[in-house]
Design a protein around this nucleic acid. Sequence first.
DNA 1: GCATGTGAACTCATTCACAGCA
DNA 2: TGCTGTGAATGAGTTCACATGC
Lengths: 221, 221
Amino acid sequence: MMAESTRRGVPEATVGRLPGYLRALTDLADAGRGSVSSEDLAQLLGIRSAQVRKDLSALGSYGVRGVGYDVARLCDQIAAELGLARQRAVVIVGLGNLGRALAAYGGLAPRGFEVVALVDNDPALVGTTVGGLPARRLDELDRGAGTLDVGVITTPAEAAQEVADTLVGLGVRSILNFAPVVLRVPDGVHVRAVDLSTELQILAFHEHQRLLADARGDEVG
Amino acid sequence: MMAESTRRGVPEATVGRLPGYLRALTDLADAGRGSVSSEDLAQLLGIRSAQVRKDLSALGSYGVRGVGYDVARLCDQIAAELGLARQRAVVIVGLGNLGRALAAYGGLAPRGFEVVALVDNDPALVGTTVGGLPARRLDELDRGAGTLDVGVITTPAEAAQEVADTLVGLGVRSILNFAPVVLRVPDGVHVRAVDLSTELQILAFHEHQRLLADARGDEVG
DNA sequence: GCATGTGAACTCATTCACAGCA
DNA sequence: TGCTGTGAATGAGTTCACATGC
């Protein structure tokens, strides 16, 4: 069956860069720039211009040959693609140092994400407020919270799977997991994992390789 | 020219999974498991067994056909590959909520990373201690800190590039950047970026796509 | 028999190079 | 002329399927 207008199917690698484009374009818009070339954007993101053009043309975007892309329009285009028209409701589960830091982070609301609920099962924390929001128990969450779009898990590793199960039960279909475990979730639920140790170990690997290369007296690769 | 033993060249995608293997194997070792199959590991990491075998054989690893991999040995093998024999010295720059949370995080030391210095340029913070370490100014960092392996940047976006430049000047060649900017660094310096808004926006994209799909009454992909 | 290790097939992503159009 | 949009070429990563060896 033929597609109505262009068939959607933005490559995952492109999706991963869209927030970067959006950030750069927002900055350009704030600076009063009306249009921008793929080469400029490439510089700003640290990638190649052909990549930029491929990415943007995957959105069905309209650049102007010989001129570039209209900054404001491309902004809107990408924001729409990311579904940022609607504000998202975020719940943070786990109010340790990291959870509290994220709860207090001011960079979310202006980017379309509003923290609407905080959760911790530690009785000492329940009832206290962080950034104006009260902490509740996970099992009280269904009431009064309205629809939740995104769950952020900042619990210890041991608790994370159970939290994820509960969130999925509440209808959450997007999870950002900071706990160092692989979460099992049903099809249709998206999980992204952020792990500090993992990142550091990857950096360590490269440092180690450089060390080995230096010891061998290799040319710089 | 022929390689001495197997030529090193672990694919980047494999490197990204090594910390996950290490975590799973550490857990297995703690649980007293002596050996493990690629299928078991695949389950634990949420990937396929062929992937596991490819990854591990890239390390020149010795599994035993018909049996599996020796847990303790594979642990050592991967730790060696990641260069974790040596403890790494980490400096955290930017002692806002996130920086302080990371400074207080206990999960680093056991994984080979020791926070040896904390930096912030806010006079109100300099001299205070977080997790037993005093906060100093960035320009005092060269003295008494010994060698720094990894810089973690948790400053506001505006300050991040300057901090990165300074760190590079101090000999740091691995940077973990939490600030929402693309850092420019010389060749040979590795940067990994972690950005909360980016992650959330990627999740939002997929949620948005599901919504569109639902509205069209599509089959589940 | 059973699970590893690996060539080959395949899918996904990046880069090139140039046609097409303002 | 200059910059976009894109087919073609290349490269990276994943999956398949089976020969290999304990």
